[in-house]
Nucleic acid binder design. Sequence first.
RNA 1: GGGGGGUUACCGAAGCGGUCAAACGGGGCAGACUGUAAAUCUGCUGGCUAUGCCUUCGCAGGUUCGAAUCCUGCACCCCCCA
Length: 430
Amino acid sequence: MSFLSDLRWRGLVHQTTDDVGIEAWLEEQPRTVYAGFDPTADSLHVGSLLGLIVLRRFQQAGHKPIAVVGGATGMIGDPSGKSAERNLLSKDELERNVAGLGQQMRRFLDFDAGSCSAELVNNFDWVGPWSYLEFLRDVGKNFPVNVMLAKDSVKSRLGRGDEVQSDGMSYTEFSYMLLQAYDFVHLYEKFGCELQAGGSDQWGNITAGIDLGRRMRSVQLRGLTWPLLTKSDGTKMGKTESGAVWLSADRTSPYQFYQYWINVDDTDVGGCLRMLTELSREEIESLDVARENEAGKRESQRRLAEELTRLVHQAEGLAVAQKATEIFFGAEISDLNDEQLSQIFAEVPSKELPRLRLSRDGLTIIDALVEAGLAKSKGEARRTVGQGGAYVNNRRVEGIETQLTAEHLASETVMVLRSGKKKYALLRFV
RNA sequence: GGGGGGUUACCGAAGCGGUCAAACGGGGCAGACUGUAAAUCUGCUGGCUAUGCCUUCGCAGGUUCGAAUCCUGCACCCCCCA
């Protein structure tokens, strides 16, 4: 199967500028492809994961990927897919974000692979030096306003007459597409890059770049978009109640990241496996069958979570996430030290108590639950224990009279308390 | 300005002299079931040094052996007539 037909099979091709010729063009020789990333934060999130994965696939197929971080365009704000004017980022913030993004990309792309080594560039480097007048003469001259006005990203914001709502857009955002278009031309000149890939919302910007290439350099550039990653209920993939799912462990722990994928709906998981993992077609199709026969096993979700967590957080991150999962879902806690427990229970509230409280008869389970914040009052704690809902180190507490002593410590200083199925708290005895 | 009704626990809502820490529903918590889904079922749901004690039925007083329940005043809300 050709590289492109594999991409198509995976559902990663939404539109191309040349459905017929592009396949042969890609097979003919190694090509250079670029995709852009928005530096609106110092970390990438699941929304931009797809772009990295597409570039990664291109590289694996022998092509040269370029990741462009929009240090310049980020200062302007891409109007595509946005309903309101964007807040501008300060130059400092942008620099910090660009650096953070570059760090993360190294996990996806090989920057030391000879002729197909990945490149990471910041468009501020070539956009920054332009003077306004020069830019208008050399680049702006090539953009007919009527064509610009016809772009969806602009149309939707201008809201012609019958449109219900429109926030309008500033001249700044209107100019965004010129900058991105010029990026393409610049990358063509510097790296011989002839293909730009992007999410389907980037189509307008991509074609703007292609037009500009033809006008300025008489060259035929190409574009390819992937579909936006959405769930069957229409909402964006990678969003939780508490916000975006990030790729940086500081913002979204490997455990949370792993759990996000474990919880993907049956209806969405097949698409995710195709688009996001590097599992073979055979493997994915056998998972489809398994899902139909034994949905309860959730083999697909497990594989998805495993593949992505390993890709983003390495084998070590995956191991922590899996261990944490095992424990959060009831495995008895033993043979772990303070450090491992702290890592697994990083997001769980904890409280320090003097070690003295464990001496002699120890601490009653009732007091422990209240101290840990798992019960609002002793009465509530009694009820929980009485109903069999209290656990120490994931072992159910049988009697309301239970006294906790040093023997109940899970590690050097930590005791893991749990109320009900999932509410955990740590007590640290120091 | 005149007349009537109301204010109960996290929310809604019963209770109208003792058996009221207060029915019922929702919510919440826990258990069973289950696919880390949804639904369903069961139990619990003021606090405590706990066969008892303390606080709680708008607020403050009073009647009574005894008040969420009766009386007086106050506050707030709703309705009807001007």
